[in-house]
Amino acid sequence: MKDIINIKKLIHDYQKYNEDGKVESTYRAVDEVSLDVQPGQFIAILGHNGSGKSTLAKHLNAILLPTEGTVYVDGKDTRDEEKIKEIRQTAGMVFQNPDNQIIGTVVDEDVAFGPENMGVPSEEIEKRVEEGLKTVEMWEYRSHSPNKLSGGQKQRVAIAGVVAMHPKCIVLDEPTAMLDPVGRKEVIQAAWKLNKEEHVTIILITHYMEEVTSADQVIVMDQGKVLMQGTPKEVFSRVEELKEHRLDVPQVTMLAHELRKSGLNIPEGILTREELIEELVKLKTTADAEGGAICP
């Protein structure tokens, strides 16, 4: 199966110039990152501020171009200027602040903006607007002003606008960073629905660990490099190493880790409340059968 995203030894340097237009300093934001993403995957990229994850995200939509290395989106080199339009239609982008993405005065007009720019016929645009808004459960708000929506609703409208362009991949660059817990849940549920029902490849950039426990792959970045890569269970089993790099783990994973340190025979990599309860019930059942206690 051909990769939807193929990155080889990507380097991105930001340069600061002095008043004479000469390079004063260089900061390496992404340092030899390689990554392959297959169609239909849900990929999560984690890291604290300054880790390089948002810079990486902007390469997936050709907003930024490599200083060194290569980025291919659906087989197209992001350095190829003639392919930029196709690349941006293939990999849609949703940013952190929904207010910076919504330009229409009415919700359905805003969602129609992308397809209109692509030259999609009017009848087809109407279908795509309905499809996009229904996918994120915002159809009933189609005639509303975006200014009267909540943060989570605005972000879902932004996602609908990308969906209406029929991308194969959607890159969400910290889409829940400015939202309250309800808004975060709405947006993440919309992303999962697109992935599972529409088979859209999702690349989620976030620092909320609980949002990624069901992802196919988790990539952890630090200082521009890939620090860890694997399934959520594999990555979040490395609690102490993540803590050393000032990174969190899901709360239930941390609780299970602390219980394990206290002597309970609980496996590493617990990701959900249900998993933890199941392990505790097993311990209780075994202890009752042996006439002992859960703790040694």
Score class of each variant (00 low, 15 high):
residue 2 K to Q: 13
residue 3 D to L: 03
residue 9 K to P: 02
residue 10 L to V: 08
residue 15 Q to D: 05
residue 16 K to S: 02
residue 18 N to M: 00
residue 20 D to T: 04
residue 20 D to Q: 11
residue 24 E to F: 04
residue 33 V to C: 03
residue 42 F to Q: 01
residue 50 G to F: 10
residue 50 G to E: 06
residue 52 G to L: 03
residue 60 L to W: 06
residue 63 I to W: 01
residue 65 L to G: 02
residue 67 T to H: 04
residue 68 E to G: 00
residue 69 G to W: 05
residue 71 V to H: 03
residue 79 R to V: 09
residue 84 I to Q: 02
residue 85 K to H: 14
residue 88 R to M: 11
residue 88 R to C: 07
residue 91 A to Q: 11
residue 95 F to T: 02
residue 100 N to F: 05
residue 104 G to R: 02
residue 104 G to V: 03
residue 104 G to N: 02
residue 104 G to H: 01
residue 105 T to H: 09
residue 106 V to C: 01
residue 110 D to V: 08
residue 121 P to Y: 12
residue 122 S to Y: 13
residue 123 E to D: 15
residue 123 E to C: 10
residue 124 E to H: 06
residue 124 E to A: 07
residue 125 I to V: 15
residue 128 R to N: 14
residue 138 M to N: 07
residue 142 R to A: 12
residue 144 H to C: 13
residue 150 S to C: 14
residue 154 K to D: 13
residue 161 G to M: 06
residue 163 V to I: 15
residue 163 V to P: 08
residue 164 A to P: 08
residue 167 P to Y: 08
residue 172 L to A: 15
residue 177 A to T: 06
residue 177 A to K: 07
residue 184 R to I: 08
residue 184 R to E: 14
residue 185 K to E: 14
residue 199 H to A: 10
residue 205 I to Y: 03
residue 207 H to R: 10
residue 210 E to P: 11
residue 213 T to K: 10
residue 218 V to N: 06
residue 218 V to T: 11
residue 219 I to L: 14
residue 220 V to K: 12
residue 221 M to I: 11
residue 222 D to R: 08
residue 224 G to M: 10
residue 231 T to S: 14
residue 232 P to Q: 04
residue 234 E to S: 06
residue 236 F to E: 01
residue 241 E to S: 04
residue 269 G to F: 04
residue 272 T to L: 05
residue 272 T to Y: 04
residue 272 T to C: 06
residue 274 E to V: 11
residue 282 K to E: 11
residue 288 D to Y: 00
residue 291 G to H: 01
